Simulated scan of single mutants.
Amino acid sequence: MQDPIDQRPSRIVVDLDRLSHNLRGIRERVGVPVMGIVKANAYGHGLVAVARHLQAQGVDQLGVAFLEEGMKLRQHGIALPILVMGGIFGPQAAQFIEHDLEITVSSLAKLRQVEAAAEALGRKAVIHLKIDTGMERIGVHSYSAGPFIEAAAASRWCVLKGVYSHLACADDPDSPMTAQQLERFLDACAHFERIGAPMPLRHLANSGGVLHFPDTYLDMVRPGILLYGVLPDPASRATVDTRAALSLRSQVIYFKVVRAGNPVSYGATWAPQRDTRVVTVPIGYGDGYPRGLSSRGRVLIRGQAYPVVGRVCMDQFMVDIGSGSAWNEDEVVLIGEQDGAAVSVESLARAAGMSAYEILVGLNERIPRQYVAA
C-alpha cells in the first residue's frame, strides 16, 4: 500500500542540478574551499539529502548550527568534516568528540570544558575559535582575543583547525561595517604570528561576503542561503549566477463560485465585489506557508498568477481565479516556475513582510520533499 504522505498533493521539489550549479558558481567566484551551510534542515531543502548531494559534489566541509544536526549527518553516513557553529553547551562536549564533529569554541571557559572532555575520552577535539568582530552574539572580542588564542594554540587536547567570525552587514554591498569587521578579524589573527604559532584556517565570508566582499574570502567561505539560489537581502547584488533550487507545489482540491459580498475565510477580512471563482489549496501556515500572505500572496495556476484571498488557514487557503479556469488536481505553484511565469522566494518575503530566510526555514517536515536531477 502506498504511504499516504507520498500521495499528498502538496510537496517541495528540490532540483539537485541547480544546487550543483550554484556550488560551481560560488567556487568559480571565490577560488578557495567552500563550507556548505546546511543548518535549519538545509534552509528547508532537507538536511540529509542536501548533505549527501554536496558530499557527492566534493564540497570541502559542511556547517550546522547544533550538535543534533551534526549527529544526524553522521548517523546517515556523511563523512565530510562538519563544523557545529552554535555556542557549545558544556555537558555536550563529549558527544561532539565521539561523533567526530568540529567544535566552535567561543570563550576560554568553553575551551577548558572541551579540553576536560577530550582528556576524559583520551581523544583530541578539533576546534575552531570564534572571534566577535561586531555581532555581539558569541565569541571573544577581537580586541581582547590574545590570551584566548594563546591558550588554544598551547592546548594539549585540542587540534586548532580554524578561526572565524561572522559578518553582520555583508548582505548590503554599501555597508561600511564589513570592512571594519575584516580589519578587526585580521588584527586578531595576527596574534598567531606574534606568538609564533601556525595560522589556522581563517573563514569569514557568508553569502553576503561571497557576493560583495572578495577581501573576506581568506582561506574558506561559508555560503548559506546563496548556495540554494536565493539572495540574502533585497539590497544584495547577484554577482554569482545562482538558481533557486526549491519549488513548492500543491493542487486544487475544491472549486466554487462565491457571490459578491460573501466573505472568505476566518475573520471575514475579504469579500469579492462581484461573483467570482475561488479554489481551495491544501496547504497552510501549519506547513510553514506564512499567514502573513493572507490577501497578499500570489500563486500560479495554468501559468497565470492569481491572488490569495482571505486569511491563510492552518491547513488550507483560498485563491481568487476571477473568470479563469481551474479543475480539481490542477497544479498550483506557490514557489517556483510554471509555463514561463514565476513566484520567487524573495517576492513572497516582500509580500509577507518577512525575510527570504524565514520563508525557507519555515517550510516544515509536514510537507514531503522530492529530489530531482537530470
Rank of each mutant, 00 (worst) to 15 (best):
Y43L: 04
N206W: 07
S344D: 10
Y164C: 02
Q75W: 01
S323I: 06
A205S: 15
S142L: 02
M220D: 04
I131P: 01
R243P: 03
V332F: 08
G322F: 09
A118S: 11
S236A: 15
E365R: 11
G77E: 06
Q2L: 10
D174P: 00
A109R: 15
G70F: 03
V114T: 11
F185W: 08
D17E: 14
E358R: 12
V163N: 00
G25H: 11
I225Q: 04
A65F: 15
A179H: 14
T242Q: 07
G36A: 14
S207G: 10
L293Q: 07
V140M: 08
A190P: 01
S325L: 12
N41C: 03
N364W: 07
M35A: 08
L204T: 01
Q370T: 12
A49W: 06
G267C: 06
I335C: 08
D60A: 08
S250T: 13
D172P: 03
V240P: 05
V309K: 01
K110P: 00
G139Q: 06
V258F: 06
R24E: 15
S20K: 09
P223D: 12
T104R: 00
G286L: 04
M354Q: 15
I103C: 06
A238M: 07
W327I: 00
V159Q: 15
L293R: 04
G310T: 02
L182Y: 14
P282R: 04
A349E: 10
G196P: 06
L334K: 07
E136A: 15
